[in-house]
């Protein structure tokens, strides 16, 4: 090892001591987040390139059989901590528990799903290890020679892809956008190692969770945008809440769900958790139908992995047509009403 001068706040790291790909597996109310399962699939791919194992990290209280799930989705090993002190989610406590595991096992890569909680945890973990971290990656690869993680993230509005690397520090941490990778199949015949670790050297909690409350949503009979196979998306060309209602009707007729551009959620026509695009959600449905969506680059960023893109817009010069498989140039109301009629006549019992 060459002794390059580094910041005295940083521990010296011997890169060759760090081996394996880790996924922090986030769960809530006994259910693992899709983003974490998707990352196990990607981790498998990276790990096989450099011939190492995939470990899933789980922490919490009363985890039960949930700790077996990562194995079914492709992990070789689950390392978990089950402790009453973790029954309440306090960010710096959870992050410190992960830091302790990393210091013990020394993985070379640690991945987090970029959920709201994942984005909160990952930078504290990375910083406490004085390691590099890249946020909201949309692709990952690994350099077989240097074992450097190639972390791809859109930047400056999504029109540029930056490849970030951390050549001299380990581990390499990244948070990855949910739904950019597919969920691997669940195979209950897969076998793996399950290791229980105990909690130690944690900072004082300094905080207590006083309560959790769920909010009810008006559009709650429709699935969230990231879960549906077909997403009808309202853009600014849809002139108000009434127009959005018409699109909800279309979404229901097609067995899909409703989403909106930033303009639409900013206007309050749909809740912000239905916002699609760079500052909202990334989706990869089978069919995306953009209605009155102009196609700003920030929105395209969130839909470009869709299998089929349909655009309905009265402006023939709308940029979205450049990204569409099928486009209809028409007033949106007329087109949507016609679509509803065609669907009704098709499905009329004969």
């Amino acid at each position: 090892m060459s002794s390059v001068k580094i910041c005295p706040e940083w521990p010296q790291v011997n890169k060759s001591e760090y081996k394996g790909v880790w996924v922090y597996v986030e769960h809530r109310n006994g259910v693992i987040k899709d983003g974490s399962l998707q990352l196990i699939g990607k981790a498998r791919e990276l790990a096989s390139k450099i011939n190492v194992d995939v470990s899933a990290i789980m922490i919490g209280h009363n985890l039960g059989d949930l700790v077996k799930e990562p194995i079914y989705y492709g992990a070789d090993r689950v390392i978990y901590i089950d402790d009453e002190a973790l029954s309440v989610y306090i960010p710096h406590i959870y992050a410190s528990a992960i830091v302790n595991l990393v210091n013990k096992y020394k993985p070379e890569v640690v991945l987090f799903a970029a959920t709201k909680r994942g984005r909160e945890l990952a930078p504290y973990v990375a910083n406490t290890l004085r390691a590099g971290i890249t946020a909201d990656c949309t692709d990952l690869d690994i350099d077989v020679k240097t074992r450097d993680l190639d972390q791809v993230r859109p930047t400056y509005g999504g029109n540029i892809l930056a490849h970030i690397r951390t050549p001299n520090r380990r581990p390499q941490l990244a948070s990855v956008r949910p739904n950019v990778f597919p969920t691997p199949p669940r195979d209950t015949s897969r076998k793996g190692e399950i290791i229980k670790e105990s909690l130690n050297n944690l900072p004082k909690p300094n905080g207590v969770l006083l309560g959790v409350k769920s909010v009810t949503r008006g559009d709650s009979d429709l699935p969230p945008v990231e879960k549906a196979d077909l997403v009808v998306t309202a853009g600014r060309g849809v002139s108000g809440p009434e127009g959005v209602k018409l699109l909800i009707e279309l979404a229901k007729a097609l067995g899909g769900t409703i989403g909106g551009t930033k303009k639409v959620t900013d206007a309050g026509w749909l809740p912000t958790d239905r916002q699609i695009g760079q500052t909202g959600k990334t989706i990869r449905p089978t069919v995306y139908i953009g209605v009155g969506v102009s196609g700003a680059i920030q929105h395209i960023f969130g839909i470009k992995e869709s299998k089929i893109i349909v655009a309905i817009n009265s402006d023939p010069n709308a940029p979205i047509f450049e990204y569409a498989d099928y486009g209809i140039i028409s007033d949106y109301r007329q087109a949507v009403q016609a679509l509803l009629e065609v669907l009704r006549s098709m499905r009329k019992p004969s």
Binding site: P154, L161, H163, R165
Partner: peptide, 15 residues
């Protein structure tokens, strides 16, 4: 610790 190793234009899937 991190470096921007490369930048490229985001290329859309052919439609």
């Amino acid at each position: 610790p991190t470096i921007v190793a490369k930048i490229e234009d985001a290329k859309p899937i052919p439609r």
